[in-house]
Design a protein around this nucleic acid. Structure first.
Lengths: 151, 151
DNA sequence: GACATATAGTTAGTTATGCAACTAATATAA
DNA sequence: TTATATTAGTTGCATAACTAACTATATGTC
């Protein structure tokens, strides 16, 4: 069960929607203009840390649909760029808690602005009912497949 | 414009739907049992060749949402496994036409069977109307974003 | 307490991805 | 017809993906 999770490479786009790509592209371009070379994948990790700082690597992997090996290396790279630090948990020393640095924190504002703006453009003429149907269909397809151990 | 195409890593899942993953997993497991180690990505190329043999690399890249560099290397690997051969086009010698070998051809039957079976399981209780709505929403999100050059 | 088991994370190995710079062949324009 | 631009494909580079094997810490059971 614990090993029966989504894999990012295959399903991330579905789960997060097509607009994610556009948001990430825009962010990437913007960060690059500001001298920061952040990949789309790294951005997805930062995004979750802005929502909740100090997550464990495993939890970050779950939230971004990555296995732990991929998560390890993504955080390696983020640490190299000093956007993030690993801190061993006091309660359980197996666990690394990941915290944003002072370099990463100010990026949140512009990220959110760009994300909102892009989402609004992407979903311009899509109604709430349609979004609900799409979500519901995905959930049922997912259920149908996981029931058969196919995902 | 020509460079403004989908990139597989980001959008393949959306375009082809979640069920693709399950189909590919099942195929991969089955092929492996038969001694053939075909990756999910390689399978996606074979799939299009079964539909239409002798496509150019560029056309294969378009149909599988990959850039030409990725396509080159996927076909390298398929050629190593002798599932596919490159033949220079007589009309335009820049073009490589990609053909299935006699090893690859018989795999089509089992592939299609598994794909149908998996699709039926995935879409078990989804109605045609719902599928149409999902497709339509994707198309409109895609249009909204490409209109702004965001994809 | 000791031994087996589970969990968090790392490392190694292979494939894949995207960008950019390149080669070779073809098409266009002067 | 020669110079220029375009097109198809390849190669180099860095990042990322997944699997499997590994280390270290924690938990459970006898």
């Amino acid at each position: 069960m614990s090993n029966n999770q989504f894999k990012r490479g295959e399903l991330y786009s579905v789960v997060n929607g097509m607009a994610t790509t556009a948001v990430a592209r825009r962010l990437q371009k913007n960060f690059r203009n500001a001298g920061l070379d952040i990949t789309i994948e790294q951005w997805s990790v930062l995004y979750h840390l802005w929502k909740e700082d100090g997550l464990s690597q495993l939890e970050l992997g779950n939230r971004t649909f990555r296995d732990k090996a991929s998560t390890t290396r993504l955080i390696d790279n983020l640490e190299k760029q000093e956007l993030v630090v690993r801190v061993a948990s006091k309660e359980d020393r197996r666990i690394n808690l990941v915290y944003l640095t002072d370099i990463a924190k100010p990026l949140q504002q512009i990220t959110y602005e760009l994300a909102n703006q892009t989402m609004n453009e992407a979903l311009l003429d899509i109604t709430k009912e349609e979004i609900d149907i799409v979500k519901n269909v995905f959930q049922r397809v997912y259920d149908n497949l996981t029931n058969k151990d196919l995902l």
